[in-house]
C-alpha cells in the first residue's frame, strides 16, 4: 500500500469533512428512527410511503421540502443576530463530535481535557437559543429562550457532576483513558454509584436536548416552537431539527463513552475482541438512542416549575452525593 503523505492540515480537513457529513446524515437517520420507533411504541406504523420501503426517505424528503421554503426574517427582528443564531446553535453540536471515540484510533482529537471540552462545548448552543429567542421580537420566542436557558443551567449541573463521577473513577479527563479504565459490568461498576450516575446523566441529557418530558422551551401547545417560532426553511431545520437530532446523537455517543464502555466488547471475553470496536460502539450507541426515543412517547411533559424543582431539589443533590460516594470509593477501595 503506497504511503499517502498528508500534512496535518490535510488530515484535519478530511476529518472535519467527515464530521460535516456524518452529522447531517446522522440527524436524518436519527429523525427517521425517531419517526419509526415512536410510531411502533405507540402502536402505529409511522411513515410508510416516501422512498418506497417503509418510508425510508421521509426525513430526506422533509429536509428537501425545507430547502425550498422561503427564508423569512420578521421586520422587527434583529436581523444580524437572527440570522447568526442557527449557526451559533448548530456549530457547537458539530464540535461535540470531535472527541467521541468510535474506536481506539477513530477519534478526531483525543484531547487531554476531553470531558471538560465535551461539557463546555455542549452548552454553547444555549447561547444560540437565547440569541434566536431575543432577536425574534416575538414573545413566545423570548419565553422559550428564557425557559431554555433556565433549563440548561439546571440540568447542566447533574450532567457535569455525573461526568465528574466517571472522571474520578478513571482518574483522567481524556475520553480514551476513561473508556480503557471501565470494567465489565459497565454502567454499574462501582456498585450502585455507576448505575445512578448513568440514570442522572440520561435524565440530564434528555433535558438538555429539550426533548419530552422536558420540552418546556418548545412546548408547542403553549409557546408554539419557543425560540424557533419565527424561523423558516433551512434556518429552522438547522436550529431546531438538526440541532435536536445532532444533540441526541452526540449525547448518545457521550453516554456510551462515559458509562457503557465505549468501543469495548460488552463482555470481556477474548474471542469477542475480534469484532471491531466500531461495531460494539454502534450497538451500544443504538441502544442509547433507543432509550432516548423510548422515553419520548412514554411520558407526558412536565410543568416548568416541576421541571426546575426536579433538577434543583432532586437531581443535583443526588449527583452531589454520588460525587462524595465516588470520592470515598476511590480513596478507600
Amino acid at each position: 500500500m503506497p504511503e499517502i503523505a498528508l500534512t496535518a492540515w490535510q488530515i484535519l480537513l478530511v476529518k472535519v469533512l467527515v464530521i460535516l457529513t456524518i452529522v447531517p446524515v446522522g440527524a436524518l437517520a436519527g429523525g427517521y428512527a425517531e419517526h419509526k420507533v415512536m410510531a411502533h411504541l405507540q402502536h402505529r406504523l409511522g411513515p410508510m410511503y416516501p422512498g418506497g420501503f417503509h418510508g425510508w426517505a421521509t426525513t430526506l424528503a422533509d429536509g428537501l421540502k425545507f430547502l425550498y421554503k422561503e427564508d423569512i426574517v420578521p421586520d422587527a427582528a434583529d436581523r444580524k443576530v437572527f440570522s447568526l443564531a442557527p449557526a451559533a446553535i448548530f456549530v457547537p453540536v458539530l464540535m461535540i463530535y470531535l472527541v467521541i471515540p468510535i474506536d481506539r484510533n477513530l477519534i478526531v482529537e483525543d484531547l487531554d481535557v476531553g470531558i471538560f471540552y465535551l461539557l463546555a462545548v455542549g452548552s454553547i448552543s444555549t447561547i444560540g437559543v437565547l440569541m434566536a429567542g431575543w432577536s425574534s421580537a416575538n414573545k413566545y420566542a423570548l419565553i422559550g429562550a428564557l425557559r431554555s436557558a433556565a433549563q440548561l443551567i439546571a440540568y447542566e449541573l447533574p450532567i457535569v457532576l455525573s461526568a465528574a463521577v466517571v472522571a474520578m473513577y478513571a482518574g483522567s479527563l481524556s475520553v480514551i483513558d476513561i473508556v480503557e479504565k471501565q470494567n465489565f459490568p459497565f454502567a454499574i461498576w462501582p456498585p450502585g454509584i455507576g448505575l445512578i450516575a448513568f440514570l442522572v446523566f440520561t435524565t440530564g441529557a434528555v433535558a438538555e436536548m429539550t426533548r419530552v418530558p422536558f420540552d418546556m422551551p418548545v412546548a408547542e401547545s403553549e409557546i408554539i416552537t419557543g425560540p424557533f417560532t419565527e424561523y423558516t426553511g433551512m434556518r429552522y431545520i438547522f436550529s431546531h431539527m438538526f440541532a435536536e437530532m445532532g444533540h441526541m446523537v452526540a449525547f448518545a455517543g457521550i453516554g456510551v463513552t462515559l458509562f457503557l464502555g465505549g468501543y469495548k466488547p460488552i463482555i470481556p471475553w477474548s474471542p469477542l475482541e475480534v469484532v471491531p470496536g466500531v461495531i460494539w460502539f454502534g450497538l451500544k450507541f443504538a441502544l442509547m438512542i433507543f432509550l432516548f426515543l423510548w422515553i419520548r412517547p412514554t411520558f407526558p411533559r412536565v410543568r416548568e416549575d416541576q421541571l426546575q424543582k426536579f433538577a434543583w431539589k432532586f437531581l443535583i443533590p443526588v449527583s452531589l452525593v454520588l460525587v462524595l460516594a465516588m470520592g470515598a470509593w476511590v480513596l478507600y477501595v
Binding site: 420507533v37 405507540q42 402502536h43 402505529r44 406504523l45 410508510m48 412514554t298 411520558f299
Partner: peptide, 21 residues
Amino acid sequence: GLLKGMAVTLKHLFKHNTVIQ
C-alpha cells in the same frame, strides 16, 4: 411508575400492528 410506563410502551413495540394502510 415510570418503569411501568416504559414497560407499557415497550410491549406495544412488539405487539402485532393492526394499522390498515
